[in-house]
């Protein structure tokens, strides 16, 4: 009998791999891929889910151009993303260096700094809301002890975004510290010992050894930080400030979709956000992966 045309049968291992993969692939296809394609389809339609969709071509995308609320929400989102990535990242790096040098009580410390990450965002929002309360809040009481003037925090359009960013940075820092610590543990002691023999100071060791060797960690945190920063919703939604001073892009998208029931327009916004994030990610990738460090 000829071998041509005979079907190749899978062995047990391949069948197992397939059996394990199929549910995941199906899940991804039905719960991620299909909705994304459908969202792209409805971005060219006027649709509220309650009535049949009407094809409007590029109208939903065109309307985004003249949408002033969209620009202000993009500004808020960009400020949030840049600040949380750079300031939050810098602070987390400093804390990671400090924690890395701690010999005793490291386990307790790990729990303490990771606790906010595990806390419900709504609970964090409520607690920080009270801390920030201008008349009876704890932060203003502390300022009063030092003779400093009372601040409006979340209640002023001038300080609301900064206040929300501070609270959000506090909550997310534990995760960034863990990533930095993992990177720090991967750096061999021998580099530091060699530097010590050469008489390098602590700051020089950080500058010439730690930072260059943590480059992949920085790249990872920068890219994922920007992606999550641009998708921010809950942090700003829970700690909202007056005059839409903390209204981010995704919150505006959510309002368009679920308050105005403008699903087509909201989908167009989602694809605009996707384009922004992809562009930024590619730029970052180009910029930060040019040089590789090797010792």
């Amino acid at each position: 009998m000829s071998q041509v045309g005979k079907k190749k049968r899978l062995d047990a291992k391949q069948r197992f791999v397939l059996a394990v993969l199929i549910p995941t692939v199906l899940f991804f296809v039905f719960f991620n891929f299909v909705p994304i394609i459908y969202a792209f389809y409805i971005s060219f339609h006027e649709m509220d889910f309650l009535n049949p969709p009407t094809f409007v071509g590029l109208e939903n995308y065109k309307r985004l151009i003249g949408d002033t609320h969209l620009y202000s929400s993009l500004r808020v989102t960009a400020i949030f993303a840049v600040t949380t990535v750079f300031i939050g990242g810098f602070l987390a790096f400093c804390f990671a260096l400090l924690i890395n040098s701690v010999k005793r009580g490291a386990a307790v410390l790990r729990t303490v700094y990771f606790l906010p990450v595990m806390t419900s965002l709504v609970a964090v929002g409520v607690i920080w809301g009270w801390l920030y309360q201008p008349r009876f809040g704890l932060l203003n009481e502390v300022l009063k002890l030092f003779g400093l003037p009372r601040q409006m925090w979340l209640s002023s359009p001038k300080t609301a975004l900064a206040s929300a960013i501070a609270a959000s940075t506090w909550q997310g820092m534990g995760y960034t510290i863990v990533i930095f610590l993992a990177g720090l543990h991967g750096i061999s002691r021998t580099y530091y010992e060699a530097a010590e023999v050469d008489g390098a100071s602590s700051l020089q060791k950080v500058w010439y050894i730690t930072i260059p060797l943590l480059r992949p960690t920085f790249v990872y945190l920068l890219i994922t930080g920007f992606i999550t920063g641009f998708q921010v919703f809950d942090q700003l939604y829970v700690m909202s400030g007056p005059l839409n001073s903390t209204r981010g892009f995704v919150e505006l998208l959510y309002t368009r979709a679920f308050s105005y029931y403008q699903m087509g327009r909201a989908s167009a916004m989602a694809f605009l956000l996707f384009a922004i994030i992809v562009t930024l990610t590619l730029i970052q990738f180009r910029l930060v992966t040019r040089q590789q460090v090797e010792y």
Binding site: P242, L243, R247, S259
Partner: peptide
Amino acid sequence: IPYEVESSYGLGMLQDLLFF
């Protein structure tokens, strides 16, 4: 009354504008 008129883009703004 559309939600936005009653809240963030309408009546809700009056307080913040007056306060600031």
